[in-house]
Amino acid sequence: MSRSQDTTSLKRKREDAQQTKTPESVLLSLIKSKGDMGIWKADMKRETNLPEPVVNKALKILQGRNLIKEVVNIKSKGRKHYMAMEFQPSNEVTGGSWYTDGKLDTNYIDVLKESCLRIIKKLKVATTEGISEFITRSRITKNDCTRQQIEEILNSLVLDNEIIEVKSTGLGEYHSIPIGTECYRAAGGMGLGQGVRIGAMASFPCGVCPRLNQCTPDGIISPKTCVYYTTWLDF
């Protein structure tokens, strides 16, 4: 009994599809065509010329059948984006591997950064592969990091001036690394907590003064009456 009903409904559907496509199928094929990028609801409306209630209803049905899913797009978090079930959101949508649920996972990044720095300090000189291997072996993180991720972390440590990028000379500390290989070592003299060396300008009020442009010897803002100087020279 039920079987015959099913077949009739299927038949009807096929007939429908041949005559006029249902909003659901139109939307589904549109969403699928966008692949791992997904599509915004308003764009669907524009591209299919369907009225809003119809789109809403169809999306609900499709979601109920587990054919599509809602994803957060990093570029416009407020807008609802949809993607076919078969696809994993691309990096462009999620913001990359460092984002979870549309937010930058700073905790995870910080843990990785600190571990990398510690490893480099311990090994003195290390290549990306060496560090990556060390991290997998010691199971610092729950999920595995790709080599790409480690490289990004190391890159950011270089920007922080915590480590420096060098080429192996094959001599001394570098003996285990082939000559010419890119490797990293801790920046000399400045470790954790010590931070970056402060330059000449940055070590007194004028160097960091937001009003330096308006400052003149006898003006309203002047080194003679400067409050920053007064607090600086108050022993």
Binding site: C206, G207, C215, S222, P223, K224, C226
Partner: peptide, 12 residues
Amino acid sequence: EMYHAALNLRIR
């Protein structure tokens, strides 16, 4: 800016 800052230091 450095010249400016040096002038300020001297004036002060």
